[in-house]
Simulated scan of single mutants.
Amino acid sequence: MIVTRIRQPMVPYMYIPQLWLLTVSNHGVIFQDLVHLDRDDPDQPLVTLPFGHASQEIVNLLLCGQAVPNVFDNNMDLGGVCMKGISTSVEVGFLTYFESLNLCHVGRNLKCPKWPIWVIGSDSHYSILFALDTSVQDETQIEDHESRIRQAFDAQDQSGGGGFISPEALQQILFDLKIDMPQDMLNNLCSSDIVIWNELWQALLQVDKTKGGLKDSAAVLGKRQFEVYHFNGIAKTVASSGDVTQQRPRLTKVRVSVPPKWTPDTALVEEYKAMRSDGTQGSAGSGALVPEPAQHAQLVDCIRTRWQRATCNWTGDAPSIV
């Protein structure tokens, strides 16, 4: 009826704003109902007091079009209670400092968006991490296989992101992904009531890739290096001249170096020692370049939730996510 009246050419102009207001109001009610259906607990506020922080539902609504409260992939059944997560791929992703504190687990849907752009969550506000080259998300064949194993593991993980599954679920994963694990290794993993991801990952590093594992005898220790940019819209002090302090939003270029996921920690330690040795000799006149020391900030912890064991460097003030 509303549409019919708007289409009539003789409708007085004064009625049109009222009709549009009624239309928008109706859509608002429908939209609100849809948002409530997405949420686990509609009684919780979407904007929290006293500082007006947006809830995770609002962030997810903007990123994926659904006001779900969690950041893991798909839905999770916890004792008959359905916990709703991210069910689709997204164009802009999400990383959070809270994952580095083991307070949550961000799924692959949010970690690997279509474009290399991520909203960064902290305990105060949101900032942006982005790259100019989409290849920062490229994975090797082994890394892609590991990602599929982790996805299968997360699909069986009913602990709310705790990182463990049942021995029966492990058997199903090995069958589905055609992983031929030695029986003694399998018995060791299934010796308790739960299978932890880190233990499974370490075991798969000993299984050759021809048998579905992650061991690649031909792999060469080589780091991926790329640049990302971090933008914090909150004004920060950038320069001081006498009594005058300049403040403005800060854009920081961050250089990232990522070793292959399957590289043993001992190999990284030996490589670091070798670089330190070369750097010392270089300072004595050999001309060798001293490698840049790794720098740390809370943003680095966020980056490592996406690229494990990444080291970062930047010029000037450290990037701030607060």
Rank of each mutant, 00 (worst) to 15 (best):
T96P: 05
E99N: 10
N188K: 14
G93L: 03
G121L: 02
P69K: 12
D77L: 12
G80C: 06
G160I: 05
D180M: 10
R148A: 07
K114H: 10
D123F: 12
S166R: 04
V119I: 13
M181A: 11
L101W: 11
D180K: 14
G85R: 09
F153Y: 08
S127K: 05
L174F: 08
I128F: 01
K114E: 11
F98D: 09
G121I: 04
S127F: 03
D184Q: 12
D154G: 01
D157H: 13
C190S: 02
V195L: 01
K111V: 04
L132I: 02
A152D: 02
P69E: 05
M185V: 07
L174D: 05
K114P: 02
N198L: 10
P69V: 03
D123K: 14
D154M: 06
F130E: 00
L170R: 02
Q141I: 09
I179V: 12
N188C: 10
N70V: 00
F164S: 03
E91L: 05
N70T: 04
D144T: 11
H145L: 13
T96G: 14
S124W: 07
L103R: 15
F130G: 00
A131I: 02
V81L: 11
S166D: 00
L170N: 07
E143I: 08
N102H: 14
V195D: 01
G85F: 12
N198D: 15
D184R: 09
H105V: 02
V71Q: 00
L174N: 07
P113N: 11
G162Y: 03
I142E: 06
E168G: 08
Q172T: 08
E99M: 10
V106N: 09
L170Y: 03
L110W: 10
T96W: 02
I165R: 09
H105M: 03
E99G: 09
T134C: 06
S192E: 15
E139G: 10
D154E: 11
M83D: 00
S127E: 02
Q151W: 03
D176K: 13
N70P: 01
D138N: 09
D157I: 08
